[in-house]
């Protein structure tokens, strides 16, 4: 999967240097597998009362994660997102946002 993502990123040309983009996406994928997949799922379409994040661009995901990290309530699952976003650095958020936007189009 990582190879496919790298190729997609390179083809899209949406990131600076190809190598840097691959590293970001791989780190984002790893973080997604730890923090996000349990509720948003393997394809980002959400499940139960957890919303879909498929089709969202990186700017949207970044904005939301920073809002949650700042303890701003956005929707009924905010408490859970506060807890998860609390540990994310700016770099983590950038990686996650890139991975989600690139993978779950």
């Amino acid at each position: 999967m990582k190879t496919a993502i790298l190729l997609a990123a390179l083809a899209a040309g949406g990131f600076g240097a190809g190598q840097a983009a691959a590293a970001d996406l791989a780190a984002g994928e790893e973080r997604y597998g730890v923090n996000c997949v349990n509720c948003h799922g393997r394809t980002g379409r959400g499940m139960a009362s957890f919303p879909s994040i498929a089709g969202r661009d990186a700017e949207f995901i970044t904005s939301r994660l920073k809002s949650y990290r700042a303890r701003e309530t956005v929707g009924p699952n905010s408490a859970l997102m506060f807890s998860l976003a609390d540990e994310l650095s700016d770099e983590d958020i950038a990686n996650l946002s890139a991975f989600i936007a690139e993978t779950f189009r």
């Binding site: 009362s49 929707g75 009924p76 699952n77 905010s78 408490a79 859970l80």
Partner: peptide, 12 residues
């Protein structure tokens, strides 16, 4: 209706 709780949306 929504309420001021975690997972506080309708249908809980």
């Amino acid at each position: 209706r929504s309420s001021a709780h975690p997972f506080g949306g309708p249908g809980a």
